[in-house]
């Protein structure tokens, strides 16, 4: 079995640990960045669409089980996010989207879809203002997630110079 298929599983534990313990300390008005999504997008661009989709599904399911969320909600949203991010994969596009600030844009698009799907299963009812719900539940977390994803671009870049 190729080691590349096991790497996401090893990465999941520390990422989920940080998401559940450290990230609550950096929340702004209840809005938190989604590190799992950033990781799924990274694997999706670097290893292809199918790999990203399966990684998204596995990460979502595992996170639902350990966090007490509705089981299947994160699985569904991260599966779609991984699939969308996979469109930016490919031999020629990988360098462009993985190591430049375009990565944050891909994260933003995936995060927006991820949050919209996740919210759909949670809050939509008669009294919900759709535009406001879209802004609060999808746009703000997506912006925060994409800002944090800048670190994925900056840190390896700085290290290369050092």
């Amino acid at each position: 079995m190729k080691i590349k298929y096991l790497i996401p599983l090893f990465v999941f534990v520390p990422v989920a640990l940080i998401q559940l313990t450290v990230i609550p300390f950096v929340s702004i008005q209840g809005v938190v960045p989604n590190l799992l999504l950033i990781t799924v997008v990274y694997f999706s661009i670097s290893n292809g669409q199918i790999f990203g989709t399966v990684t998204g599904a596995s990460y979502g399911l595992l996170f639902d089980l350990i966090s007490g969320n509705l089981v299947g909600s994160n699985m569904l949203s991260l599966t779609v996010a991984g699939f969308i991010a996979g469109y930016f994969s490919g031999e020629t596009r990988r360098e462009k989207y993985l190591y430049t600030y375009s990565f944050t844009l891909v994260v933003f698009i995936s995060a927006l879809l991820n949050a919209m799907i996740f919210s759909f299963f949670s809050v939509m009812d008669f009294n919900t203002n759709f535009v406001q719900a879209l802004f609060n539940h999808a746009l703000l977390p997506s912006i925060y997630t994409s800002i944090v994803s800048i670190l994925v671009v900056i840190i390896p870049y700085k290290r290369a110079f050092d």
């Binding site: 199918i50 399966v54 599904a57 399911l61 299947g72 569904l76 599966t79 779609v80 699939f83 996979g86």
Partner: peptide, 19 residues
């Protein structure tokens, strides 16, 4: 790609109903 997506989405939806 679409078949993998479709099957995983269907699995997620069926898990959602089994909470």
């Amino acid at each position: 790609e679409y078949l993998v997506l479709l099957s995983l989405v269907l699995i997620s939806l069926s898990i959602l109903t089994q909470n």
